[in-house]
Design a protein around this nucleic acid. Structure first.
Lengths: 213, 213
DNA sequence: TGCATCTTTGCATACCATGCAACTTATGTC
DNA sequence: GACATAAGTTGCATGGTATGCAAAGATGCA
């Protein structure tokens, strides 16, 4: 079943620091090996050896081999959730989401090389790409709840989750980010990523009108 | 690698009819067994035995065990693509997509019981749900291309796929459908599915404004 | 230091997934 | 209808994936 994720933020204990380090080492080993040899040719044994742990320990951190390629940053969801909750009150829900996601993407640029490799790996095998897309869903559910909180103020999300509007907003924003990344990685020379990102959200806010051209 | 899907429509040859029957039998066996015992407890051997074929044959039809739970109707994508292309010219792209998807969902109601079980199974194990969402991506890419064709009239989609707008539209519409189904299955008694579906597309067309209430 | 807790590891086991060769079943032709 | 061919199914062998369990090794805390 995997180990619990303990604290999302930077905890102080030696144990938790070691655990984060091990997880990061496994993740990085998986991505680098996959970028070099192709994801299908990378065995769990190779990943574990590169990260300096046993195969059994690999499965203490990831539920499946593919998870090591797909799950990049486990705390990203929590950070976006907080960003949505802390956004200025005069931002529309859509704009709050846009800003939270933009901040997260900017953060991702810090690990530039690794993220680039990661994108390459996912794009190279559709199987993993699909898995990656699906993996965002949990984060989207979190975001939907954050939006619901933002809208209603109170903490009682009721028995059966956020309403239709927050769910839709989170799902659509997720789709928007994926579309931006896809399109940008196919037209990297023509436009900066942030331009694509903002054009996408502008289209959303306008109700996706048919292009005039 | 899986067998090729031959023709999407109803072909006449005995071979192809048998193949579709076998695929359907495997798919149905997988879903029913999973609904009864939980997806994790269903082995490929059990699915194959229920469908009356060997384990080896199972893997001739599906690339992995999970695919049998996830891939319900392999031709749905092709049908929606055609529906988008054949839609009346005065419909906006968003409306054309909405109608294509509504038609497909109405079709799904024919197999009501099986689709219901399918939804249950996916919902019961997040792992499969994520996989299911990812599986829609190929269909979305197809839809994006159809929209691009619809907008530009010509057949030359260029070297690097549809533009930003068609991609975004397809991705957002996919997110809208998933959201509708999620929300509806959580509030089944309160509203008819089609009402939820239309409310979602109305919100999209309005640019996802913050709710006034 | 010494004890409680958590983590890693090896081992055993079962299932998943693919290549290959032999066998069976459709299709089209004579 | 019988034949040659192409297509699909099956069993076997093989290797990777994934989990439970118990022993050994770290860490946290009094």
């Amino acid at each position: 079943m995997q180990l619990m994720s303990e604290k999302g933020a930077a905890g102080g204990g030696l144990r938790e620091r070691k655990k984060r380090a091990t997880r990061a080492a496994l993740s990085e080993a998986a991505v680098r090996l996959a970028a070099e040899h192709g994801a299908e040719k990378v065995t769990v044994e190779a990943i574990s050896a590169t990260a300096g742990v046993s195969v059994r320990t690999f499965f203490n951190y990831f539920d499946s081999r593919d998870d090591a390629f797909v799950v990049i940053d486990a705390d990203a969801g929590a950070r976006m959730r907080r960003a949505v909750l802390d956004a200025p009150a005069d931002l529309s829900p859509l704009a709050a989401l846009r800003e939270a996601m933009a901040a997260e993407l900017a953060e991702a640029e810090q690990q530039h090389e690794l993220w680039r490799l990661h994108a390459e790996v996912l794009h190279a095998s559709p199987h993993l790409l699909a898995r990656g897309v699906g993996a965002h869903m949990a984060a989207e559910a979190d975001l939907a709840e954050a939006i619901a909180l933002r809208l209603r103020g109170d903490g009682g999300t009721g028995g059966d989750g956020p309403g239709l509007y927050p769910r839709l907003l989170a799902a659509v924003a997720g789709a928007a980010v994926r579309t931006s990344m896809d399109h940008w990685s196919a037209h990297q020379e023509e436009a900066a990523f942030l331009d694509v990102f903002h054009e996408v959200f502008t289209l959303l806010a306008a109700g996706l009108p048919a292009p005039s051209a």
